[in-house]
Design a protein around this nucleic acid. Sequence first.
DNA 1: GTAGTCATGTAAGAGGTTACATGATTAG
DNA 2: CTAATCATGTAACCTCTTACATGACTAC
Lengths: 225, 225
Amino acid sequence: MSLRHAILGVLSAEPMTGYDLVRYIDESVGYVWSASQSQVYPELRRMEQEGLIQATVAQRGQRAEKRVYSLTPAGEAELRRWAADLLAYSPDRDPLYLKALFFDMVPFAAAREQLRAHIAHWSRRLEQWQERADLIRARRLPLLRKRLQQRDPAEHEAIVQFKAWVIEGKVARARTEIDWAQRGLRLIDALEAGRLTAAVAEDRAPIPRATPTLPPHQGPSGSEA
Amino acid sequence: MSLRHAILGVLSAEPMTGYDLVRYIDESVGYVWSASQSQVYPELRRMEQEGLIQATVAQRGQRAEKRVYSLTPAGEAELRRWAADLLAYSPDRDPLYLKALFFDMVPFAAAREQLRAHIAHWSRRLEQWQERADLIRARRLPLLRKRLQQRDPAEHEAIVQFKAWVIEGKVARARTEIDWAQRGLRLIDALEAGRLTAAVAEDRAPIPRATPTLPPHQGPSGSEA
DNA sequence: GTAGTCATGTAAGAGGTTACATGATTAG
DNA sequence: CTAATCATGTAACCTCTTACATGACTAC
């Protein structure tokens, strides 16, 4: 049940409507926990009923209303409790790695295409996250500023450092994924050239612990580091 | 819908019962895609109805029966089709990273405990995966051997190399997670000692792109690399 | 006989996705 | 007046988890 804690986390910076919440989740916490609009509204109602948040109904224009949610003391307590609670790990499930296990059953071209898409995907994330980490350290994000305003200045450094460290963890993850995909491309090159069939057959006896030496990646597969 | 492809993947090595399948998923594909027993049986029935697999009812003992499932040609085609199909990426969702975003709200001790658990968790995985990668390269796994037996020897190298590469990708992931957690522990040490409050405040102007230099981790937090 | 393993299921519920649905407000 | 944005929801469906349930077989 992390959705509600993502919501509590955003609302702990500043009260806002469900609509704003969805947008902020998308562009702040969403880097780490995303949620769809159709999930958020019902969850807000449940949380309100349970006393974790409260809504102030505000007018907008002549006829319409909107509900601005803020944390109750119970909500803040729940956020702290959850953050300090030891996490139970759930089973690994990675569709791309599963797919890659069976790359021997597909044409080289298909495997290459998939890996280039993987590199593209994680490169985009890498840039977004890197930029975001910089913005956090520079304290340039509106929501972060709001958060700092209502916290003791003595805590500011910890707040900024923890958040930057988390996002930089995601940056590292992105680099690992890109690395892996590039090693995959080199492996495909080697297999296609028939270089491995002979090479590895020779020194089968001493089990290589790491990836066997592969020539640098080049040629039609592109996407070098 | 990756569960059925994980199942197809295992059955493509060797026909087996649902019971065996659950065990093999747990210890082979499960390193990358896990599935619970209560998921597998109904899915097998559905796949049988759709003609992807077929069951041979075999006796066991006097009264009991068991259903041994094997791939149909349609099942193998589906496995190949899926493996070659470009993957759509789903949103990021990582409960620990979400939690870590709010470590400024918990006692240092609680954050440390969580990070040590993280290191322990991924260290275990690291060892398991490393060992598994070695076994794959040495071709010592029973199921892998069965798989190789029914494939053209010219394909053997590709089969082994792809699988080893995938697992080594997981090894790299584990290292990244451990690294990140260790940087977190050092960050906590620094925050606790009050070293960062002063240090970072001084050079706020030039935005540091990477993690600021931190002293090597030591003291009560343990768990050094 | 009895404990552990082999073997196959069902049911309730949590959490998430996609699609549908509606209407007011505001900027041009 | 019209398009984009603000704002709030519902419904069907899929996947996975947890727990319950049953019973035969095998080794001791």
